[in-house]
Write a protein that binds this DNA or RNA. Structure first.
Lengths: 190, 190
DNA sequence: CCTACCGATCGGTAGG
DNA sequence: CCTACCGATCGGTAGG
């Protein structure tokens, strides 16, 4: 499975954007990293903005697609939340740089790219909120302010890539086991 | 209590950096926002980098100072954690823009500024970790992987400003009550 | 894929 | 606080 030149550009860019930020990376930096000249990049992509758009929409679509599937499943809300957490861990492992880039640089998306990203994100948050509401309705979840839970869980999941980059000896298996515990059941002994 | 011109520059800059990012804001943008010319800024500050440094070190120092006090208090680990959460809420309300700027743009700090910031952050995380360890030793906290808890709680606290910017009708009182519940006791009914 | 180049904008300085 | 200006760098194009 060989990569097209365009795919190579996107992968290289996602790594550089993650390390130093979209605005801090010039087309000359990106070209140098690939061993070519800046002008040559434009044979494969149409603008710097397109690169950012493709990186961010790629993962955004994966996330939204996954939660739409989970959302329709015949599962308890807790099982759904566990599946969502596992999915975030998987995507973090598979698309670490894309994810970091999405979190840090989505603000620099323009026009249609930004609109499409925000639509996907809103759709994701909406489904997530509804799953939590289901949990409250069915009596599985505590009566805590919904927005606070949405915020606190999603923030942690979205920034998993920061933890992953540190590689402080934690195993993925540990994360898969203890992250759902932490987020769902808390850290205080009952 | 009137502000010096330098303080005005820093406050205005923190708002602009929060909205569009350090690299996306030019000295001309900042000057225009203050109704003066870019060259005039240099009568009050020595460089763009100095502005970023002052913004970030200000809040970093407040955080570290607070946890150092808490750390030495004669309190249970749970009470310490509650105090830390309350402090994050307070600083978020007081320094929303500084905090957002710290989270998004610390990567663009250079040399000594970056080093001082990283030292403060490491000191903070270290104290936070020790408080959690105290909780495990005294049997108040569950036996969950320590790094996962450090990561998940601190990530949520650090990005509170995102929630606050949304202003989705949540009252501060609700946040002060339900955020500690969510982070410490989880969301699943026992 | 390259060389050569464009207009625009950047952080910052000189000098008043 | 300003005008005037510096060298450097930016995203992108023309033409091969």
């Amino acid at each position: 499975m060989s990569l097209t030149r365009k795919q190579e550009i996107i992968i290289t860019a996602s790594r550089l954007f993650k390390e130093r930020g979209y605005n801090a990376i010039s087309m000359r930096d990106l070209a140098a990293e690939m061993g070519i000249k800046a002008a040559s990049l434009y044979n494969h992509i149409s603008s710097k903005q397109e690169i950012l758009g493709l990186i961010i929409l790629k993962v955004s679509e994966e996330f939204t697609q996954h939660i739409n599937t989970i959302y329709l499943d015949e599962l308890s809300s807790i099982k759904k939340l566990e599946a969502i957490i596992q999915n975030h861990i998987e995507i973090t492992l598979k698309y670490t740089h894309h994810l970091a880039c999405m979190n840090n640089d989505w603000i620099h998306l323009e026009d249609e790219y930004k609109q499409r990203y925000l639509n996907l994100r809103n759709e994701y948050e909406s489904k997530f909120r509804q799953i939590l509401q289901q949990g409250k309705d069915e009596g599985e979840l505590k009566d805590i302010d919904l927005e606070i839970v949405v915020f606190s869980v999603l923030t942690t999941l979205r920034t998993l890539h920061i933890w992953y980059a540190k590689k402080t000896s934690i195993q993925v298996a540990t994360l898969q086991q203890d992250l759902p515990k932490t987020l769902l059941y808390g850290i205080v002994k009952s």
